[in-house]
């Protein structure tokens, strides 16, 4: 059995006019793109709308895709620009309950275990990231750890230098670590050592 075509191969076919290839691209990438946009915008409904808009724009602009780069990087770049445009257009207030809304959506799944996992996620690091970090930091963090992109690829998506991305990632992690450390301290140290305590050393806590 032949291997499934890569995203880049599908993109080349789609660029040649194949709607079947583009449909497969949409099928493979709609979920990652939606979650990226949900985290970035803080609103599941906006994320859904933007996901659709990003794919349609990608189809219109396929002729401009340079297949020396990963197709996902190109698509995420389009999605980010769509999100920026939408935010400028309606100047909508960011809904801080983003991941909760997404989690409720997840909880509609058939398995009770999924709903429980979703609730746990809403108390997890990404929910914390939604509350503590700005959209660019959240986006960088998501692309790095959920999408496994390199700083250079993230830089292309967010239109920033790789060095800037590294600093942005470091600051985002530090903000999360400091918050977790503060939660631990508020507990008066009555609990066991916070599992992430080790990654919030004094040197980081004192960094301004």
């Amino acid at each position: 059995m032949s291997e499934a075509p890569t995203l880049e191969e599908l993109a080349r076919r789609a660029r040649a006019g194949s709607t079947h290839a583009f449909a497969e691209l949409v099928g493979r990438l709609e979920r990652p793109l939606f979650h990226f946009l949900a985290l970035r915008t803080g609103c599941a409904a906006d994320a859904e709308e933007l996901t659709q808009a990003a794919f349609v724009r990608a189809w219109r602009k396929l002729a401009l895709y340079d297949d020396r780069w990963a197709f996902s990087t190109w698509l995420f770049t389009i999605a980010r620009r769509e999100a920026v445009s939408q935010r400028r257009a309606n100047a909508r207030h960011t809904d801080r309950r983003a991941l909760q809304e997404v989690s409720e959506l997840h909880a509609d799944g058939p398995e009770p275990g999924d709903a429980m996992a979703a609730r746990e996620r809403s108390d997890g690091l990404w929910e914390l990231a939604t509350r503590l970090l700005n959209a660019e930091q959240r986006s960088a963090l998501w692309l790095r750890y959920a999408e496994d992109m390199t700083p250079m690829e993230i830089g292309r998506v967010l239109a920033k230098q790789p060095t800037t991305i590294r600093v942005m990632l470091w600051r985002a992690r530090r903000a999360l670590a400091q918050h977790l450390q503060a939660e631990f301290d508020d507990d008066g140290g009555t609990r066991e050592r916070h599992p992430l305590h080790a990654m919030a050393p004094d040197s980081l806590a004192g960094e301004s």
Binding site: V26, E30, F34, V102, G109, L125, Y145, A146, R173
Partner: peptide, 29 residues
């Protein structure tokens, strides 16, 4: 440890169900 947790929870979140836009996208395309 933080990075590992971000990866793990990110993967869980990424794998979770999401609303499908494929039909609408392809109709428009």
């Amino acid at each position: 440890e933080l990075e590992e947790r971000l990866r793990r929870e990110g993967r869980e979140c990424r794998a979770a169900t999401s609303p499908s836009v494929a039909d609408r996208v392809m109709r428009q395309v």
